[in-house]
Structures are given as C-alpha cells and as structure tokens.
Design a protein around this nucleic acid. Structure first.
Length: 485
RNA sequence: GCGGAGUUAGUCUAGCCCGGCAUGACGUCAGCUUCCCAAGCUGAAGGCCGCGGGUUCAAAUCCCGCACUCCGCACCA
C-alpha cells in the first residue's frame, strides 16, 4: 500500500477529504474528517483515555483555542515561533534573515533580535540576493501563529500553536482544587494551529490539527520514585541512539541510563503499550533520542516516537523533558505562584511532556491496517475491532420472505450500543466487500434459517469465515469481541 | 516561498499536441434475477472539464493570472 491508495480510500469511504473543497479559495492545510474518520478518531481517543489518562489517574482538561498574547509572550512563541525573513525585491525569493546574514558575512544576529538589526547588517555588508543579485526589502517577521482580533478594538490574541500552554496556565488552579500529588499528569485533546509555509500530504502536515498532550508535573528530586514502574518494567522499547535501534525493556533502558530516570522510562512504556493496542506495527517504530542540536530549546532530554510509513519515518509523538522552563516563565510573567508542597517540601515542579499528533497517528493506523487481499479480490482494513468505524454490518441475505423485516428488528436492537450499519440491497458478497473496506470486523447475516431456529451467521472480516450463533446471544458476542483491551 | 509535474462525475481515466455533441471503467441508486462472498440483465442519477480573465463564430483543448494536489528544495516547537 502507499500514500495514494490510502488517500483514495479516505476520499471514497468518508475518512477524510479537503476542507471547503467546493470553493476555489480553499486554503491548503485544512482537512475534514468524514463519518468513518470521525468514528475512528473517537475510538482512538477513547483508547488513549483508557491507556493513559485513566490508567495513570491523570486530569483531563479542555482549554480555549484562542489565548491571550501574554501567554505566548511568556512561553516564548511571540519571539521565537517567528522567523525573521527578508524578500528579494527583484525575484521575490524569501530568505531567513539571520541565516543568510550569518552565511555571507559571519555576523551572528539572534533570530529574536529587533528587525532593524537585520536591515542594518544587510545595508552595512551590502548583502544582495544570492540568486539574482537583487536588493532586499526590509526584514519582517513571519510568525507561525495565527493572530486573531478580539472585540471591536481588534485586540491581538492567538490561536494556540500547541495545546500544552493551557495546561501550564491552568496548573495552579488544578493543583489547588483537584487534590492530587506529584507526579501528576494533566492531559488534553484539542486543536492546535500553525501557519505552516507549505502544508503537505493531507493529515501529515496540517495548519489546523489535533493534539493529544500530556504534561506530567513532577518533583525533580524524586524522578526515580515511580509507583507504577513495575507495571511496565518488562515492556519493550525500541530505542534509537546514534543511528542504531536497540530493543530493550523499560527496566534495561533505565538501568543502562539510556533514558535518564524511571519517570521517563515509565511514560515511554505507557506510550509504547498504547500504540501497540492501536494496531500500528510497533516492530516498525522507534523512540529516537534527539541530539543536542535537534532538541527544542526548552528540552533537556527528548525522544521522538517515530513510525515507518510509505512516506518515510514519521514523528507521531514528541517526548520532551521540559524541566521548569514553562512554569518559571509563566510564574515570572504572571506573578502567579507555581510552587507546590510535595511531602511537605516546597518545590517548583518540572514537566515531562508527551505531545501526540492525532491526525498522523490515524493516518498511520490506516496505512498499517490496509491490506490488499488479491486472492479474494478485496481491500481490507484490518483495524482492531474496538477502533473500527463500523462495528458490525447487519445484512439480510435476501429482502423477501420476511428476512428484511427480521433484519430491521435485529438492527434496531444493536444500533444504540454499537456502530452498526444496516444493508439490504445488492449482492451479499458486494456488501461484505464494502464492510471490509471500512474495517467492520463483523457482519451479521439474516437468512431463511434465522426464521426457523432464531440463529444468524456472523462473518469475520479477516478470515471471511462464518459461524452460526443464536440471535439472543448476539449482544454478548459483540460486547466481548468489541471490548477495549 | 522556489523549481518540476498535475487538476475532467464519488474514484480512476480518454479527449488537449491539431479548438467543433465530454469518453470509458469502477462505484452509487431503482427494478428483475440469483441466494453466503465484487455474477447477470434493465434502467437512472451524477460534470459550470479547479477558479477567474483573454483570443475566437466556437475553448476541456490556445494564451494570461490565481488556487489546490503531488514530488524535490527550503522550512519544521
């Protein structure tokens, strides 16, 4: 399978498609989830809640997408999420001002410097466009954040470029009211917005995208006191350091100091177990330890969880040890106090972050589940049953002889408990094929025998095999088969 | 943002060079038939040929601009 096949399936079966596609001024980087995609996404999120939020007794919040300028002044986004750029007047090429100046003149100007410093350097050193030797316009900032105007005064605010700032800003209230103790995870699912220069490949680089972020607040002096560590100590992590992938258990990773402490090892373990249950082929995954130059400026230790796809290795989760960077910044800017009592000692928590890209994860699930069954001339999405957009197809073998009515009756009993799809029309084989393509793990078929002895057939998506069970047992059969792990 | 290639029904696609009724397949819907794995038959719906402008008696086709998609570069908290 490749990107194009997944794209075609997404368009044909209602997984995702371009936003505003009927208008020609639609912008790149915005995509909609259709019914199948939304259903898959909801179930993915439910699995995330089970495996991370509930398992680790985290607090889940849902913050504003628009946040005030002060938040991003404190977080550093206003200064450093923006690139200083200069544009050639003649050929209109755009360059990063700081990089071009450093390259041709060895003058180093920090990217967050005032704009006139760049203009001054360009003038003094008589820097011209490297391509056409044209003159440059004055420097300007290209900020990746979307600015929005609030109220009649059009006051500046911003669409959040990452969801975690809500968590940092909310932490003092949460800790005062929610009765937790360190280490405590605060989780959030939501949209983030980045004005990417060139969005690409549908769900893989979006301007509006979903993140599932977890910020674990911890006592930096007690990073090896993790109660749940024994639960994951034998979980295998594929850790990549210096271009070599080495499988090792969480305990081995910790003891060999491949990861710096038990807390980090524990959460990488939870993450690995979560992704295993999404059906992604974790044999083609790795936790890549980032080198000094690659890490974000706030991170002291960073691992990217990456998965191999037909588009190459794809980063699904950024795991950053952010130390006290965020809480210190917000404490200084807001005058709010972020210290908490941990075992009767006052401490400013450190933060370990798991920042997950949901859209990319969903794409990867689709690609890793996609199977061309040439022998049976079909395309199958072998999704885990609990993630399938449609749980069960409910079909009449033929419409006549009262089979349709009986099928409707069974469907009515199932439809509020499961994602069921009712289908009477066309050849039975064609209806099975359609269900295979959206990954429905089961198809219940009503035939003549149903009317005689009250049994129906249940067809398995992957094996195409069928068994006959009592109609009355359908509910318990499906509940057991579709249960989350 | 740069360079290249593209954009025709839900999907894929012919037609474009050389202007003159917009092809075909799959899919969808209805009916018949069959009755457990994309069978067959009959019928139907579905297109401002990406958008805007120009040339022309006439534009899917030629010209210009723009948008979007893919690839490469650059960018990437």
């Amino acid at each position: 399978m490749d990107y194009e096949q997944i794209m075609q399936l997404a368009l044909e079966r209602g997984f995702y498609f371009p936003s505003c596609e009927i208008y020609s001024d639609a912008h790149a980087g915005f995509w909609e989830y259709g019914p199948s995609g939304t259903s898959l996404k909801n179930k993915f999120i439910e699995l995330w809640r089970r495996e991370l939020v509930r398992r680790d007794r985290m607090w889940e919040i849902d913050g504003s997408q628009i946040m005030s300028g002060s938040v991003f002044a404190a977080s550093g986004h206003l200064a450093s999420f923006a690139d200083p750029v200069i544009k050639c007047k003649k050929c209109h090429l755009i360059f990063r001002a700081d990089k071009l100046i450093a390259e041709v003149s060895s003058i180093v100007i920090p990217e967050s410097a005032d704009l006139d410093q760049f203009d001054k350097a360009v003038a003094e050193k008589n820097i011209k466009c490297p391509k056409c030797k044209g003159d440059f316009d004055s420097a300007r900032k290209f900020n990746m954040m979307f600015r929005v105007g609030i109220g009649p005064q059009d006051e500046a605010a911003y669409l959040r470029p990452e969801t975690c700032q809500s968590i940092f800003v909310d932490f003092p209230r949460l800790y005062k009211t929610m009765r937790g103790r360190l280490p405590i995870g605060v989780a959030q699912i939501g949209k983030s917005f980045r004005n990417e220069i060139s969005p690409r490949q549908s769900l893989l680089r979006l301007r509006e995208f979903y993140q599932a972020e977890i910020e674990v607040f911890c006592n930096p002096g007690r990073l090896d006191e993790i109660a749940g560590f024994s639960e994951v100590e034998n979980t295998v992590l594929n850790i990549m350091t210096d271009d070599v992938i080495r499988p090792m258990t969480c305990r081995e990773a910790y003891e060999s100091k491949t990861v710096p402490n038990k807390l980090v090892a524990y959460y990488l373990g939870l993450l690995a177990e979560f992704y295993r249950k999404t059906g992604i082929d974790t044999g083609r995954s790795r936790f890549r330890k980032l080198g000094e130059k690659e890490k974000a400026f706030y991170a002291s230790v960073a691992f990217d969880f990456e998965v191999e796809t037909t588009t190459g290795w794809l980063e699904l989760v950024a795991c950053n040890y952010r130390s006290d960077y965020d809480l210190t910044s917000h404490a200084n800017a807001s005058k709010e106090k972020f210290e908490v009592l941990d075992d009767n000692v006052k401490v400013l928590p450190h933060v370990f972050e798991l920042s997950m890209g949901i859209d990319r994860s969903l794409y990867t699930i689709l690609e890793h589940s996609f199977r061309e069954d040439k022998e049976n001339e079909r395309v199958v999405l072998s999704l885990r049953p609990y993630l399938a957009p449609v749980h069960v197809g409910v079909l009449s073998l033929v419409k006549k002889d009262g089979l349709a009515e009986k099928t409707d009756e069974i469907f009515s009993r199932l439809k509020t408990r499961y994602d069921a799809f009712l289908d009477h029309s066309g050849a039975i084989g064609r209806r099975y094929r359609r269900l295979d393509e959206v990954g429905a793990p089961f198809a219940v078929t009503v035939d003549h025998q149903t009317l005689e002895d009250g049994t129906v057939t249940v067809r398995q998506r992957d094996s195409m095999s069928q068994e006959r069970i009592k109609e009355a047992d359908l509910g318990s059969y499906l509940s057991a088969s579709l249960a989350f792990p």
